[in-house]
Design a protein around this nucleic acid. Structure first.
Lengths: 206, 206
DNA sequence: TTGGTATCCCCCCTTTAGGGGGTATTGCGC
DNA sequence: GCGCAATACCCCCTAAAGGGGGGATACCAA
């Protein structure tokens, strides 16, 4: 039957891929045509698998799932990517969708949601599991969207560089760095650098 | 047969529990007598399950797996806890073992390691999967061990409180807070507060 | 054209943090 | 008894961050 959806799974959590594989194969809906535990494995094999749907973990060991997603959806536009993740950070979801993912599941989603997601993205729709859907509609998290430069500075601040050091590194005036820093505190509503770093890491803004 | 080991699983990742359950049940070694997705569920049911081995996720939604581990190993000393986690942070492993866990697995462990772990802890041994074993033997991470007070201060620093504010809150002299802060920077080898906060979060020192 | 946003730069000033010293008590283990 | 770690406290000084202003360019969209 050509009727079943071909699914490939990319996730470094081997137990989870076992579970997923069983879940998918036991359904009437789809069959698993391949499993990879690293981005490199996925790159090598996806051409042979030619899956309709790729279940892709965001937190791969060898490269960012976000970047891999972009690459794969460009190279294989017929394959729909359904992203999988443990955490539910607004910016991560946003980036995955911007990079061509068709859907998003958190790993503690129910089995039915996984199958529903596979079916939906295979049909060309976008699919967000309930938890992510709620997250994306929450206005509070939406406003945190930093420009390229701001993210760059935030990263350097998190690494503990002082204004002078940052200025030297990216060839800008220390006064400019000060301005950016003040702006970041304002934008994120952070009281000081400590909170700024905390927010940057916890909300994965860098 | 009384020969098979009774296993219970506590993890909020439903797909993973499915995978684990399949894995365990398919083996000759053990059978799954119960699955819970929250600490509350586990508390209610574990008395009925009476498992020999409890596969316990550290990152539960409703309470810390670390605290739950302590509680369960006290209440049910015959049940051996085999901890499961996504990340491999030295301090988390340390705390789990201190709180009575008999073994520790990372979630991307291979299936064989899971079964080996179950068998080992059921036999009263301690078991660390390869990755964790390596981690615990690495001398670099060992030295980071903070006192109660230091952790308390670190937490407040991460929340963005100034020395004066911290002093007011825990009724100490601002000068004392300064000393502790300097000491934390020294101990963790952090250049400034930004790095301190980053390390505290990434290494789950708080 | 006007408004918005991203980029970059400068002044003032105060508060906080960081680097360097130091002291003292308590309680634990050897 | 001695060493040692944890706790709590103090002074001096400099470096860095934070709070308040201000301004400039450029580009894009309404």
């Amino acid at each position: 039957m050509n009727n079943t959806i071909k699914v490939a799974i990319v996730d470094d959590h081997k137990i989870l891929t076992e579970g997923l594989k069983g879940l998918v194969d036991d359904s009437e809906l789809a069959t698993v045509v391949g499993v990879a535990h690293t981005a490199a494995d996925c790159r090598h094999s996806i051409g042979f698998w030619k899956p309709d749907v790729l279940l892709l973990d965001v937190g791969l060991p060898d490269m960012s799932g976000i970047d891999l997603c972009k690459e794969l959806t460009t190279r294989f536009p017929l394959t729909k990517v359904l992203a999988l993740t443990t955490h539910n950070e607004y910016t991560v979801v946003r980036k995955m969708l911007d990079n061509g993912a068709s859907g998003y599941l958190v790993k503690n989603a129910m089995a039915e949601e996984v199958l529903a997601g596979i079916e939906a993205v295979a049909a060309g729709k976008t699919f967000l599991c309930h938890e992510i859907d709620v997250l994306m509609k929450k206005p509070s998290s939406k406003n945190i969207w930093l420009s390229q430069r701001e993210r760059e500075l935030l990263k350097l601040i998190c690494e503990g560089l002082t204004n002078a050091e940052i200025a030297a590194q990216i060839f800008l005036s220390p006064e400019t760095i000060k301005s950016y820093r003040k702006n970041l505190l304002l934008k994120l509503g952070a009281k000081n650098t400590a909170v700024l770093v905390k927010m940057a890491i916890e909300q994965k803004l860098i």
